[in-house]
Design a protein around this nucleic acid. Structure first.
Lengths: 149, 149
DNA sequence: CACGATTAAATCGTGTGCGATTTAACTAGC
DNA sequence: GCTAGTTAAATCGCACACGATTTAATCGTG
Protein backbone atom coordinates (compact mmCIF):
# COMPACT_ATOMS: atom_id res chain seq x y z
CA UNK A 1 0.00 0.00 0.00
CA UNK A 2 1.13 3.57 -0.68
CA UNK A 3 1.75 5.95 2.19
CA UNK A 4 -1.19 7.99 3.35
CA UNK A 5 -0.56 11.74 3.54
CA UNK A 6 0.55 12.88 6.99
CA UNK A 7 0.67 16.70 6.99
CA UNK A 8 -2.52 18.61 6.17
CA UNK A 9 -2.50 19.19 2.39
CA UNK A 10 -3.51 22.48 0.79
CA UNK A 11 -7.06 22.91 -0.41
CA UNK A 12 -6.37 22.54 -4.16
CA UNK A 13 -4.86 19.10 -3.47
CA UNK A 14 -8.04 17.70 -1.95
CA UNK A 15 -9.76 15.28 -4.30
CA UNK A 16 -12.95 15.77 -2.28
CA UNK A 17 -12.80 19.52 -2.90
CA UNK A 18 -12.22 18.97 -6.61
CA UNK A 19 -15.37 16.83 -6.73
CA UNK A 20 -17.32 19.24 -4.51
CA UNK A 21 -16.42 22.35 -6.51
CA UNK A 22 -16.87 20.64 -9.89
CA UNK A 23 -20.35 19.57 -8.87
CA UNK A 24 -21.21 23.15 -7.98
CA UNK A 25 -19.67 24.42 -11.21
CA UNK A 26 -21.92 22.04 -13.17
CA UNK A 27 -24.91 23.25 -11.20
CA UNK A 28 -24.14 26.89 -12.07
CA UNK A 29 -23.77 26.00 -15.74
CA UNK A 30 -27.06 24.09 -15.78
CA UNK A 31 -29.03 26.68 -13.86
CA UNK A 32 -29.80 29.14 -16.68
CA UNK A 33 -30.55 26.31 -19.13
CA UNK A 34 -32.92 24.54 -16.75
CA UNK A 35 -34.46 27.71 -15.36
CA UNK A 36 -35.86 28.36 -18.84
CA UNK A 37 -37.70 25.02 -18.53
CA UNK A 38 -38.81 25.60 -14.95
CA UNK A 39 -36.53 22.94 -13.44
CA UNK A 40 -33.73 22.81 -10.89
CA UNK A 41 -30.81 20.44 -11.43
CA UNK A 42 -32.02 17.70 -9.05
CA UNK A 43 -35.50 18.02 -10.55
CA UNK A 44 -33.92 17.60 -14.00
CA UNK A 45 -32.26 14.37 -12.84
CA UNK A 46 -35.65 13.02 -11.78
CA UNK A 47 -37.17 14.02 -15.11
CA UNK A 48 -34.33 12.34 -17.05
CA UNK A 49 -35.14 9.12 -15.24
CA UNK A 50 -38.85 9.43 -15.93
CA UNK A 51 -38.24 10.18 -19.62
CA UNK A 52 -36.25 6.94 -19.80
CA UNK A 53 -38.89 4.99 -17.88
CA UNK A 54 -42.20 6.45 -16.77
CA UNK A 55 -44.20 5.44 -13.69
CA UNK A 56 -41.48 4.82 -11.11
CA UNK A 57 -41.69 4.71 -7.33
CA UNK A 58 -40.01 7.29 -5.09
CA UNK A 59 -37.70 4.55 -3.84
CA UNK A 60 -36.65 3.47 -7.34
CA UNK A 61 -35.89 7.06 -8.36
CA UNK A 62 -33.98 7.62 -5.14
CA UNK A 63 -32.02 4.40 -5.48
CA UNK A 64 -30.45 5.58 -8.72
CA UNK A 65 -29.92 9.14 -7.49
CA UNK A 66 -28.61 8.03 -4.08
CA UNK A 67 -31.28 10.16 -2.42
CA UNK A 68 -33.95 9.25 0.09
CA UNK A 69 -37.57 10.20 0.53
CA UNK A 70 -36.67 13.02 2.92
CA UNK A 71 -35.10 14.82 -0.06
CA UNK A 72 -37.22 13.40 -2.88
CA UNK A 73 -40.71 13.79 -1.45
CA UNK A 74 -40.66 17.60 -1.31
CA UNK A 75 -38.76 17.78 -4.62
CA UNK A 76 -41.34 15.63 -6.40
CA UNK A 77 -44.15 17.62 -4.81
CA UNK A 78 -42.64 20.71 -6.41
CA UNK A 79 -42.51 18.89 -9.77
CA UNK A 80 -46.19 18.08 -9.23
CA UNK A 81 -46.96 21.71 -8.36
CA UNK A 82 -45.20 22.70 -11.61
CA UNK A 83 -47.49 20.33 -13.50
CA UNK A 84 -44.81 17.93 -14.79
CA UNK A 85 -45.72 14.80 -12.81
CA UNK A 86 -48.50 13.28 -10.78
CA UNK A 87 -48.10 11.21 -7.60
CA UNK A 88 -50.41 8.37 -6.60
CA UNK A 89 -50.24 5.48 -4.20
CA UNK A 90 -49.70 2.11 -5.86
CA UNK A 91 -53.00 0.19 -5.46
CA UNK A 92 -51.04 -3.08 -5.24
CA UNK A 93 -48.86 -1.74 -2.41
CA UNK A 94 -50.20 1.35 -0.73
CA UNK A 95 -46.84 2.04 0.91
CA UNK A 96 -45.36 3.02 -2.44
CA UNK A 97 -45.96 6.24 -4.34
CA UNK A 98 -45.70 6.06 -8.11
CA UNK A 99 -44.52 9.13 -10.02
CA UNK A 100 -45.99 9.54 -13.51
CA UNK A 101 -45.28 12.14 -16.18
CA UNK A 102 -48.04 14.49 -17.28
CA UNK A 103 -48.38 15.60 -20.92
CA UNK A 104 -46.45 18.75 -19.98
CA UNK A 105 -43.76 16.62 -18.38
CA UNK A 106 -43.39 14.50 -21.51
CA UNK A 107 -43.38 17.60 -23.70
CA UNK A 108 -40.48 18.98 -21.69
CA UNK A 109 -38.18 16.26 -23.04
CA UNK A 110 -38.15 17.92 -26.46
CA UNK A 111 -37.06 21.22 -24.91
CA UNK A 112 -34.35 19.39 -22.97
CA UNK A 113 -32.79 17.83 -26.07
CA UNK A 114 -30.33 20.68 -26.48
CA UNK A 115 -29.14 20.65 -22.86
CA UNK A 116 -26.60 17.77 -22.98
CA UNK A 117 -25.01 19.30 -26.07
CA UNK A 118 -24.62 22.69 -24.36
CA UNK A 119 -22.99 21.07 -21.35
CA UNK A 120 -20.76 18.93 -23.55
CA UNK A 121 -19.46 22.03 -25.31
CA UNK A 122 -18.69 23.80 -22.04
CA UNK A 123 -16.60 20.91 -20.72
CA UNK A 124 -14.10 21.34 -23.55
CA UNK A 125 -13.48 17.60 -23.35
CA UNK A 126 -13.71 14.92 -26.02
CA UNK A 127 -16.34 12.20 -25.73
CA UNK A 128 -13.58 9.75 -24.83
CA UNK A 129 -12.28 11.96 -22.05
CA UNK A 130 -15.81 12.44 -20.71
CA UNK A 131 -16.45 8.71 -20.72
CA UNK A 132 -13.19 7.98 -18.92
CA UNK A 133 -13.75 10.65 -16.29
CA UNK A 134 -17.34 9.51 -15.77
CA UNK A 135 -16.17 5.94 -15.32
CA UNK A 136 -13.41 6.91 -12.89
CA UNK A 137 -15.76 9.05 -10.81
CA UNK A 138 -18.44 6.38 -10.77
CA UNK A 139 -15.94 3.79 -9.57
CA UNK A 140 -14.70 6.16 -6.88
CA UNK A 141 -18.22 7.05 -5.77
CA UNK A 142 -19.21 3.41 -5.44
CA UNK A 143 -16.10 2.72 -3.36
CA UNK A 144 -16.82 5.68 -1.10
CA UNK A 145 -20.43 4.61 -0.62
CA UNK A 146 -19.31 1.06 0.14
CA UNK A 147 -16.67 2.28 2.61
CA UNK A 148 -19.20 4.28 4.55
CA UNK A 149 -21.16 1.20 5.54
CA UNK B 1 -14.66 18.89 -32.92
CA UNK B 2 -16.36 15.62 -31.91
CA UNK B 3 -20.09 15.21 -32.30
CA UNK B 4 -22.23 16.33 -29.40
CA UNK B 5 -24.71 13.72 -28.15
CA UNK B 6 -28.14 14.05 -29.72
CA UNK B 7 -30.48 11.62 -27.92
CA UNK B 8 -30.98 12.01 -24.16
CA UNK B 9 -28.37 9.78 -22.49
CA UNK B 10 -29.11 7.56 -19.48
CA UNK B 11 -28.37 8.88 -16.01
CA UNK B 12 -25.19 6.83 -15.38
CA UNK B 13 -23.65 8.37 -18.53
CA UNK B 14 -23.93 11.94 -17.23
CA UNK B 15 -20.56 13.32 -16.21
CA UNK B 16 -22.39 15.97 -14.20
CA UNK B 17 -24.20 13.28 -12.24
CA UNK B 18 -20.96 11.43 -11.61
CA UNK B 19 -19.49 14.63 -10.13
CA UNK B 20 -22.68 15.42 -8.23
CA UNK B 21 -23.04 11.99 -6.67
CA UNK B 22 -19.32 11.64 -5.91
CA UNK B 23 -19.41 14.95 -4.06
CA UNK B 24 -22.30 13.70 -1.95
CA UNK B 25 -20.55 10.38 -1.35
CA UNK B 26 -17.50 12.27 -0.04
CA UNK B 27 -19.75 14.31 2.20
CA UNK B 28 -21.29 11.19 3.70
CA UNK B 29 -17.87 9.69 4.32
CA UNK B 30 -16.60 12.87 5.99
CA UNK B 31 -19.67 13.42 8.11
CA UNK B 32 -18.95 10.98 10.96
CA UNK B 33 -15.26 11.98 11.06
CA UNK B 34 -16.01 15.70 11.17
CA UNK B 35 -19.02 15.37 13.45
CA UNK B 36 -16.66 14.14 16.16
CA UNK B 37 -14.82 17.46 15.84
CA UNK B 38 -17.98 19.56 15.69
CA UNK B 39 -17.58 20.53 12.02
CA UNK B 40 -19.57 20.16 8.82
CA UNK B 41 -17.74 19.55 5.54
CA UNK B 42 -17.89 23.16 4.26
CA UNK B 43 -16.85 24.37 7.72
CA UNK B 44 -13.91 21.97 7.54
CA UNK B 45 -12.87 23.48 4.21
CA UNK B 46 -12.80 26.93 5.82
CA UNK B 47 -10.76 25.60 8.74
CA UNK B 48 -8.25 23.93 6.38
CA UNK B 49 -7.68 27.31 4.75
CA UNK B 50 -7.25 29.06 8.09
CA UNK B 51 -4.83 26.39 9.31
CA UNK B 52 -2.73 27.09 6.21
CA UNK B 53 -2.99 30.87 6.65
CA UNK B 54 -4.71 32.54 9.57
CA UNK B 55 -6.48 35.91 9.53
CA UNK B 56 -8.19 35.90 6.12
CA UNK B 57 -11.10 37.96 4.86
CA UNK B 58 -14.47 36.44 3.98
CA UNK B 59 -13.80 37.33 0.37
CA UNK B 60 -10.41 35.61 0.28
CA UNK B 61 -11.82 32.45 1.82
CA UNK B 62 -14.74 32.51 -0.59
CA UNK B 63 -12.52 33.11 -3.60
CA UNK B 64 -10.73 29.83 -3.07
CA UNK B 65 -13.90 27.92 -2.18
CA UNK B 66 -15.94 29.49 -5.01
CA UNK B 67 -18.51 30.62 -2.46
CA UNK B 68 -19.88 34.08 -1.72
CA UNK B 69 -20.74 35.93 1.44
CA UNK B 70 -24.38 34.81 1.25
CA UNK B 71 -23.15 31.27 1.99
CA UNK B 72 -20.03 32.05 3.99
CA UNK B 73 -21.32 34.66 6.42
CA UNK B 74 -23.78 32.36 8.21
CA UNK B 75 -21.31 29.44 8.01
CA UNK B 76 -18.54 31.48 9.64
CA UNK B 77 -20.97 32.76 12.26
CA UNK B 78 -21.61 29.11 13.17
CA UNK B 79 -17.86 28.52 13.41
CA UNK B 80 -17.73 31.54 15.69
CA UNK B 81 -20.62 30.22 17.78
CA UNK B 82 -18.71 26.93 18.07
CA UNK B 83 -15.73 28.85 19.40
CA UNK B 84 -13.30 28.04 16.56
CA UNK B 85 -12.90 31.50 15.02
CA UNK B 86 -13.51 35.17 15.73
CA UNK B 87 -14.75 37.76 13.23
CA UNK B 88 -13.74 41.41 13.30
CA UNK B 89 -13.88 44.29 10.85
CA UNK B 90 -10.51 45.21 9.36
CA UNK B 91 -9.58 48.60 10.88
CA UNK B 92 -7.78 49.55 7.65
CA UNK B 93 -10.90 48.78 5.55
CA UNK B 94 -14.10 48.50 7.51
CA UNK B 95 -15.88 46.84 4.61
CA UNK B 96 -13.85 43.68 5.13
CA UNK B 97 -14.31 41.13 7.88
CA UNK B 98 -11.23 39.21 8.97
CA UNK B 99 -11.63 35.66 10.26
CA UNK B 100 -9.10 34.58 12.89
CA UNK B 101 -8.61 31.21 14.58
CA UNK B 102 -9.15 30.90 18.33
CA UNK B 103 -6.95 28.65 20.47
CA UNK B 104 -9.66 25.98 20.16
CA UNK B 105 -9.67 26.44 16.40
CA UNK B 106 -5.90 25.98 16.20
CA UNK B 107 -6.08 22.96 18.53
CA UNK B 108 -8.57 21.33 16.19
CA UNK B 109 -5.88 20.93 13.53
CA UNK B 110 -4.20 18.20 15.59
CA UNK B 111 -7.47 16.28 15.77
CA UNK B 112 -7.92 16.69 12.03
CA UNK B 113 -4.54 15.17 11.17
CA UNK B 114 -6.02 11.69 10.78
CA UNK B 115 -8.86 12.77 8.51
CA UNK B 116 -7.06 12.93 5.13
CA UNK B 117 -5.59 9.47 5.76
CA UNK B 118 -9.01 8.00 6.51
CA UNK B 119 -10.43 9.47 3.31
CA UNK B 120 -7.41 8.34 1.31
CA UNK B 121 -7.96 4.76 2.46
CA UNK B 122 -11.64 4.83 1.54
CA UNK B 123 -10.94 5.96 -2.03
CA UNK B 124 -9.03 2.76 -2.75
CA UNK B 125 -6.89 4.78 -5.17
CA UNK B 126 -3.13 5.25 -5.32
CA UNK B 127 -1.64 8.68 -4.71
CA UNK B 128 -0.89 8.94 -8.42
CA UNK B 129 -4.46 8.15 -9.36
CA UNK B 130 -5.75 10.69 -6.83
CA UNK B 131 -3.45 13.38 -8.18
CA UNK B 132 -4.47 12.71 -11.75
CA UNK B 133 -8.18 12.71 -10.96
CA UNK B 134 -7.83 15.87 -8.88
CA UNK B 135 -6.02 17.57 -11.73
CA UNK B 136 -8.58 16.47 -14.33
CA UNK B 137 -11.49 17.63 -12.18
CA UNK B 138 -9.83 20.96 -11.39
CA UNK B 139 -9.24 21.60 -15.08
CA UNK B 140 -12.83 20.71 -15.87
CA UNK B 141 -14.18 22.88 -13.06
CA UNK B 142 -12.20 25.88 -14.21
CA UNK B 143 -13.47 25.42 -17.76
CA UNK B 144 -17.06 25.15 -16.56
CA UNK B 145 -16.72 28.26 -14.42
CA UNK B 146 -15.16 30.14 -17.34
CA UNK B 147 -17.89 28.98 -19.71
CA UNK B 148 -20.62 30.26 -17.45
CA UNK B 149 -19.47 33.86 -17.79
C1' DC C 1 -55.46 -15.22 11.80
C1' DA C 2 -52.60 -12.52 14.83
C1' DC C 3 -48.81 -9.72 15.81
C1' DG C 4 -44.11 -8.28 15.87
C1' DA C 5 -40.75 -7.04 12.33
C1' DT C 6 -39.84 -4.86 8.16
C1' DT C 7 -40.52 -1.60 4.52
C1' DA C 8 -41.90 2.95 2.00
C1' DA C 9 -42.97 7.66 2.41
C1' DA C 10 -43.52 11.54 4.82
C1' DT C 11 -42.21 14.85 8.35
C1' DC C 12 -39.04 17.75 11.04
C1' DG C 13 -34.89 20.40 12.10
C1' DT C 14 -30.33 22.03 10.76
C1' DG C 15 -26.98 23.50 7.44
C1' DT C 16 -25.66 24.62 3.14
C1' DG C 17 -25.82 27.05 -1.92
C1' DC C 18 -27.24 30.78 -4.49
C1' DG C 19 -29.94 34.72 -6.94
C1' DA C 20 -31.36 39.14 -5.63
C1' DT C 21 -31.23 43.01 -2.80
C1' DT C 22 -29.47 46.01 0.91
C1' DT C 23 -26.11 48.41 3.78
C1' DA C 24 -21.90 50.39 4.72
C1' DA C 25 -17.32 51.83 3.38
C1' DC C 26 -13.97 53.05 0.12
C1' DT C 27 -12.34 55.34 -4.41
C1' DA C 28 -12.15 58.51 -8.33
C1' DG C 29 -13.03 62.56 -10.71
C1' DC C 30 -14.16 66.96 -10.86
C1' DG D 1 -14.26 67.73 -0.21
C1' DC D 2 -18.41 66.05 -2.57
C1' DT D 3 -20.63 62.96 -5.03
C1' DA D 4 -21.14 58.98 -8.27
C1' DG D 5 -19.60 54.59 -8.75
C1' DT D 6 -17.60 50.50 -6.89
C1' DT D 7 -16.67 47.01 -3.51
C1' DA D 8 -17.40 43.78 0.74
C1' DA D 9 -20.57 41.74 3.77
C1' DA D 10 -24.83 40.88 5.23
C1' DT D 11 -29.69 39.80 4.59
C1' DC D 12 -33.65 37.42 2.53
C1' DG D 13 -36.11 33.71 0.23
C1' DC D 14 -36.15 29.27 -1.84
C1' DA D 15 -34.54 24.61 -2.84
C1' DC D 16 -31.80 20.97 -1.80
C1' DA D 17 -29.33 17.12 1.48
C1' DC D 18 -29.61 14.38 5.32
C1' DG D 19 -30.01 12.44 10.25
C1' DA D 20 -33.75 11.20 13.05
C1' DT D 21 -38.36 10.17 13.83
C1' DT D 22 -43.17 9.06 12.60
C1' DT D 23 -46.95 6.92 10.08
C1' DA D 24 -48.94 3.53 7.43
C1' DA D 25 -48.90 -0.76 4.91
C1' DT D 26 -47.08 -5.34 4.13
C1' DC D 27 -44.72 -9.59 5.41
C1' DG D 28 -43.39 -13.63 8.14
C1' DT D 29 -43.93 -16.90 11.53
C1' DG D 30 -46.37 -19.51 14.49
Amino acid sequence: MSDAPTAMPALPDFLCFAAYSTGHAFNRLYKPLLEAMGLTYPQYLVMVQLWAEDDQTVGALGGRLFLESNTLTPLIKRLEASGFVTRRRDPADERQVRVVLTAAGRALEAQAQSVPGCIFEATGLTLDEIQRLTRDLTTLRDRLLAGGT
